[in-house]
Design a protein around this nucleic acid. Structure first.
Lengths: 343, 343
DNA sequence: TTGTAGGCGTTATCAA
DNA sequence: TTGATAACGCCTACAA
């Protein structure tokens, strides 16, 4: 089943079939109808390799996923899913690449013409992979935000705004002494953008509003959460607001606050930086600041594709930098400060 | 940078370069060395499309992932990761396909020659996609177990054995009255293999050992977990062992048992069917029955590849059916039954 | 509006 | 042990 079979069946030349399929030159309505009819009837699909060879475009986008498991995995999977669906909508397929291949993997994709573009997930501040990308002629988009995004397009959540939004919400409820419970120290050490930037946004806004605040790292186990809370409450017993960016610490924290008599939300407010699905799942349901994973995936794909188009037309692609605004959803875990009664 | 450039540089013909790379015919040590030298020096990678066109093999495996989100996502991601890494080790790349394309998506992959083989994840008992696969000449492997796996290869965890293993462990500790807390009813209705088969294994073994048992569905929220536990304890107040196959119910359940005075493991034993990482994370750490996700991915890839090889050589591929034995890891949440003291 | 034909980079067959 | 060369299926510039 090749293009010639379709051409013969429809009584036209192969180029006409090709043009009907690509739309790159006008075809009379009648011919187009006949060709499309036989394409459908014969179940014809152009041979991907032949097409890539002749057109110099594979219609494949590579998605590089991290091997690390400290990121909240379901979110990555959700992004990957939306990347795939959006790509398909534009006639592209998605190739999955694990990060362990490193820069060589991307070089291979570029050199073999396997991928027209690359989407790199989980980019870190100071990411050493970024410099390697410049040499290649592959179009690249980052999900994440490196120190220097020159020559690339980037999409990410506006984590800084998310951190600030948490502070604003708590401040608006009258809290004056708050704490940030984040990820384990390893994550800050490797400068994961989502951790570093959220904390920075939190810090800046808290200082701006002259609030007292504390930052505490937490590995996510029950013990480490207990440790973090212990430190906070002994250093700053007056703390009433908790901003939590650590999915695994949420359950333990709620439990610990309860056992310590700090009933949420009457005696303590908790605001989570986590996906909606998670926030909904606790009792009390958590007020949360969230970013839309599907948007990330969609925009990343549209950015690579637009870069690919530009480069095909011989233009230098514009570098885009999109930061998605976070959303605050108020649920049951935050409330106005009540002066602690002496009872 | 094509094969001709390498050939010229090494002073040989293009076919010699090709044969050095593919190893499909003997090449003198000296020539091989020279060719390999220039391949590396020039950073040559064969053009994927051209290769696929000439050889009729794309060296790409398609991985079809479900869109549904009720499966425990990190496990799917882990499988996908290992599929990718194993595939690379064998010189294959992995194309990500979301399930929303349905059978047409797979037809497209086959017809366009984009994929040499397909791995279908999250296959259900009575899966309607299976029948469609027979028509295609693509080699297919299922992760999961359909009612009728004829003409296909399958890999999956031995969920039935896992269910039985839980019963055995509890029985060995002296429990005589146990309960199974599973997923929401929707999952059983669509006959997800991991749910149905685990429960069947649990049932069969419990009956065999003449234990009293109950099955309770649970959506995974705090409320539904409370509901499930409430039913169990009112119907069978003597229940001392809990088998839980529902990641989200674990936290709530532990908390509920504590508040009801059924201290784990002294007054109640809990055994989880979940990944190690999760089991480790609770206090007390959970005794758990687990399957190795990486093995699943690895075996699936090796099965497709072996099928592809067979079909290339004109043989009909053998249908394999591999069920991976589960592992029991005893932690802190299970212990011998203590007769409840009257205090 | 449509057809003809050259070429894309590899593989593999046939010779030597 | 190696080389020349005809496919592989499609795209697209050029003709008509």
């Amino acid at each position: 089943m090749t293009i010639r079979d379709v051409a013969r069946a429809a009584g036209v030349s192969t180029s006409t079939v090709s043009y009907v399929l690509s739309g790159k030159r006008p075809v009379s309505a009648e011919t187009r109808r006949r060709v499309e009819h036989f394409v459908a009837e014969l179940g014809y699909h152009p041979h991907a390799g032949a097409r890539a060879l002749a057109s110099k475009r594979s219609h494949i986008i590579a998605l590089v996923v991290p091997l690390r498991t400290d990121v909240y995995v379901p979110v990555m999977m959700e992004i990957a899913t939306y990347v795939t669906m959006t790509a398909r909508k534009h006639g592209y397929d998605v190739l999955l690449i694990t990060n362990d291949e490193g820069p060589d993997g991307i070089r291979r994709l570029a050199a073999s013409g396997l991928a027209d573009g690359v989407i790199l997930m989980d980019v870190e501040l100071g990411d050493e992979r970024i410099s390697t990308l410049g040499e290649l002629r592959t179009q690249t988009v980052l999900i994440g935000l490196p120190d220097d995004p020159a020559g690339l397009s980037c999409v990410d959540h506006d984590f800084s705004a998310a951190g600030a939004l948490c502070v604003d919400h708590l401040a608006g409820l009258g809290h004056r002494e708050i704490a940030f419970i984040g990820y384990g120290t390893g994550i800050y050490r490797r400068r994961a953008g989502y951790a570093e930037r959220t904390l920075a946004g939190f810090r800046a806004r808290a200082e701006e509003l002259r609030m007292r605040f504390l930052h505490s790292s937490c590995e996510g186990t029950y013990e480490s959460t207990a440790g973090a809370l212990g430190h906070i409450l002994s250093d700053r017993p007056g703390t009433t607001g908790f901003v939590v960016q650590n999915e695994r610490a949420l359950g333990p924290l709620l439990h610990l606050l309860r056992t310590r008599g700090r009933i949420v939300p009457d005696k303590a407010s908790v605001i989570a930086l986590c996906p909606e699905r998670l926030a909904d799942q606790y009792a009390p349901a958590l007020t949360a600041v969230t970013g839309a994973a599907k948007e990330l995936g969609r925009i990343a794909v549209e950015q690579v594709i637009s870069r690919i188009f530009a480069s095909v037309r011989g233009r230098r692609p514009d570098d885009a930098l999109v930061l998605l605004a976070p959303t605050l959803t108020v649920r049951e875990s935050t409330g106005p400060v009540r002066l602690s009664d002496p009872s």
